[in-house]
Design a protein around this nucleic acid. Sequence first.
DNA 1: TTGGCGCATTGACCCAGATCAAGAATTGCG
DNA 2: CGCAATTCTTGATCTGGGTCAATGCGCCAA
Lengths: 246, 246
Amino acid sequence: MSDMTFDHKECGSCPIRHRAVCARCEADELEELDAIKYYRSYEAGQPIVWSGDRMDFVASVVTGVASLSQAMEDGRTQMVGLLLPSDFLGRPGRDAAPYDVVAVSNLTLCCFRRKPFEQMMLRTPHVSQRLLEMTLDELDAAREWMLILGRKTAREKIASLLAIIARREASLELTTAGDGMDFELPLTREAMADYLGLTLETVSRQISALKRDGVITLEGKRKVVIPDYDRLQIETGDDTDGGLMI
Amino acid sequence: MSDMTFDHKECGSCPIRHRAVCARCEADELEELDAIKYYRSYEAGQPIVWSGDRMDFVASVVTGVASLSQAMEDGRTQMVGLLLPSDFLGRPGRDAAPYDVVAVSNLTLCCFRRKPFEQMMLRTPHVSQRLLEMTLDELDAAREWMLILGRKTAREKIASLLAIIARREASLELTTAGDGMDFELPLTREAMADYLGLTLETVSRQISALKRDGVITLEGKRKVVIPDYDRLQIETGDDTDGGLMI
DNA sequence: TTGGCGCATTGACCCAGATCAAGAATTGCG
DNA sequence: CGCAATTCTTGATCTGGGTCAATGCGCCAA
């Protein structure tokens, strides 16, 4: 774990500014946030906090991927959240981290000291509004995930995960919705298995099957090409309303 | 669906007062809530809203049980939330219901018209604080559930569900934590299956197995007796920190 | 260049839970 | 009270995905 600094220009493009906390912040509120802000980097595989740890910050993901997961004492683990760039980590008003947080890839966080952040929340209603909105979004994502975990087949699970990641990439890069998306898979087979409630062997087999059936193409092990997004969408088993909403 | 009225005394014991929205409300805020409040009853099995419907109210469960669930078009359904007395239904700031809501048993809701409720939220910061708190609790519950769905065996799933319901009953009735809890199961075998990502046959078999092994006793089909809560807790596969926290 | 290490793939086999199919127990209603 | 409709239980069989084990593929370091 190393501290680092971003120059103002980079900071200006930090996702926290336009997506997470301050979608509607005024200039002086941004100043205030800048004063309690610091950057922190982690390497792939590094733990960020353990379940039960005291967390004295909240943060926004700048680059990389982090996971939230719950473990049973016999070693079974279930990923319960996936944080991609612009996602928010931490909970104002709560001392202890409820899950293990791990850097899945190399990761940079934009952190805010928790106490001043909470005080700012109390003063500026639209920040806490925004927090509620984000928490409701997380709740929706968690519940979509519950459907995946409880009722989908292995093949549908893999297709759903690929579709979720593809959507997220597209919405960040403002890519055109159409066909021919591609992206770097930020997860190992084991992490995908933990996400989907499968074993890594089943993940590997189903990815091979989707490749064999022409739903996806792999370049190397991690680069995924999706020639026809609608086809992938059908494989997820979801309503085929198709669109790239999020 | 029928409208009904509660006299003031009953209203005074409505869970909304002491658990959900107004844990810290002052008398005049309670007056204000009373002005936009009405009661509504549903019979077991009745739908309350369908996914996508416009919802012009938020509500608190007074008596009975409701479920939130998601359906795939081929008929597979997954319950994604279970609302017991004192739980909150609806989302300030959002027009459309994201899930199907169904009355699992006979149900009474204490409803608040959404627009005035939202305006009140904007004015009284501790109400929106409370909303955020409740939403974070729901998120935690959803994620605990994800572990259940993704990684637990059928037997552990059933034990977990019974433990969750037993805990909830205990926390509402302020029962002593110790042994010898009992409660009326508010769910059919099919609803339990939808909750746990199982089939109703598997639910039935595992309940029989837990009964055979002396973990639970049934009186009739719905009344469950738990002679030793710690024993049940062990069957859930969770950390055996035991306590009745919620 | 070679060996070692960390992923990923693939195969063979097995088992928990699904599916299909009777019945039994409750519940509700005329 | 009695008959029908639910809801639940139990049995027999099947199968998707888990488990165990071997092999492959890069990539880095010596």
